[in-house]
Design a protein around this nucleic acid. Sequence first.
DNA 1: ATGGGCACCTGGCTGC
DNA 2: TGCAGCCAGGTGCCCA
Length: 271
Amino acid sequence: MPELPEVETTRRGIEPFALGRKIVRLAVHEPRLRWPVAKKLAHEVRGLRIRAVGRRAKYLLLELDTGTLILHLGMSGSLCVVPATTPRRAHDHVDIVLDSGQTLRFNDPRRFGSLHYTRGVVAEHPLLAKLAPEPFDASFNADYLCRISRKRRVAVKLLLMNSQLVVGVGNIYASEALFRAGIRPKRQARSITRAEAVRLVGAVRTVLRAAIRAGGTTLRDYVDVDGAPGYFSQKLFVYERDGQACRVCATAIRHFNQGQRSSYYCPTCQK
DNA sequence: ATGGGCACCTGGCTGC
DNA sequence: TGCAGCCAGGTGCCCA
């Protein structure tokens, strides 16, 4: 579920509670996540201090004294800060108990999330090593986009969602960015003109920034650290708005399936 | 190398 | 009311 804005909202939410805190105990109540949580992980991080709370793509990174915890929220995951005495609820899989008496509690009904610990250079971890630039990085620009897409026949929306081109853009924000750039999701990547590439890079950044400002998008179950929803759903132009009037030109928004995912666009605003 | 499809899992909604 | 069927913010992997 969570795309970059939701993960970034979570990062900012836990940072004030986590930074500088020592991990008293890490309890894995359900190790069957996307990959089984390593048995030795809890023992490895016990007593270590959280030196930084970072993010790379959709991964949350808790930098500890001697390594990094790598947490992915999957499709339905969320992280809350609660007093350690708070009773667990369904799908509360991991507790990171801090020396403040609070715990970072990971909840994930679908269990597509993951938790790893690495003592090595985190950027070289197999999950992170092949990731493309961050959308706000200067290296993600129109030249780069043109170069990558030049020979690609794949639909531009699928390319946007490919973490080897740019990270953090999932199904919601790919549709939204393409709307803002005036480009139909079905267009072959190689048909994107330079002017369109300029617009698309700008649109990706604008929509992600706006979504972060709104605390992310809650469609079904995403909540932030305080259990509150994100408000960007009110500002979506096309996502899950099929049949409704385009907010710009009033044409009915259309919907179709693309790569086993739903895509939405305005047939008038997008060419 | 590229692109397409599947798998992993639970819960909520729709329609019979 | 019950239940089958379908859908959902991700992404690694296997195959052609």
